[in-house]
Amino acid sequence: MKPLALLGRTLQLVPVLLGVSVIVFVMMLLTPGDPVEIMLADQQATPQQVETMRHDMGLDRPALERFGVFLGNAATGNFGLSFFHRRPVFDVIAERLPATIELTLAALLLALVIAIPLGVIAAIKKNSLVDRLAAVGSLFGISLPGFWFGIILIILFAVHLKILPVAGRMDFACEVAPVTYLLTIDSLLRGRPDCFTNALSHLVLPALTLALPMAAVLTRVQRTAMIEVLRSDYITFAEAKGLSRRRILWRHALKNALVPTVTVAAIETGSLLGGNMVVETVFGWPGLGRLVVESIFVRNYPLVQAAVLFYAVTYVLLNFVADILYTVLNPRVKL
């Protein structure tokens, strides 16, 4: 891809990101209840104090000016104070983020590991039993309410079979000095296989819950792409070259059929962000999603606002990455 095209594509992000910020800002403006009063709810504040605080926070200035300040602050990671935690919102979010990233990556990996072979096999053996089972499976996958499926998994594996933990990220007994803040990776890096299995056992169920709908979508994408590719001339030509079936399928066909799958996976990773809220709540996973849900109930709006902005920006960027991936993986497409 040409650098210029990349630059042009990047510039297209600007209006979208700006629009997203406007919406987040307007959401906050329209939120009922005065933030200052919420903050000072548990204190006996005089009207004088309220007024001072309002002025300090810039709430008495016109909306447009406040939006400018908001944008500037957002760009520098200053989202104000989380009045619930009495710490900067940025710090609170940064603290919770690794757990969410770990869960999301695990789910993404799991979804790909399920979907790619399944989609390929379903395509090769079109209309076979495997294909039909995959079709039924992916119908279930997109129809499963994640919060319920998570609970069912807990009932099965944690309560009845007692082979996996009910909630959390790692037992307190395990403590690993952070490197990447992703517990599974850190425990491996620190040479603690016991902690690794512990972290992994906590990770399996939430990751599976999160991965299943995505795997369902990706299986279909992979199957359709593979069927399409197997009909193409270059597969016939590869057969005429006398190559092994394995090489034709897993090198010639898959390299092309992966393009849509990887693209959709990048987009779907954005959707995982939404699913995170539900799954983290079900499994008591100490990530950003659960933090947001908790914050709503204590009306910790600055945090909700910052998190929503963070999610939206990540989502837009993931779609952008999907676009770029598509062009990079598919040399024929010119940007």
Partner: peptide
């Protein structure tokens, strides 16, 4: 812009 937000 609306597509920029995850639905949930």
């Amino acid at each position: 812009i609306l597509l920029g937000f995850p639905y949930l």
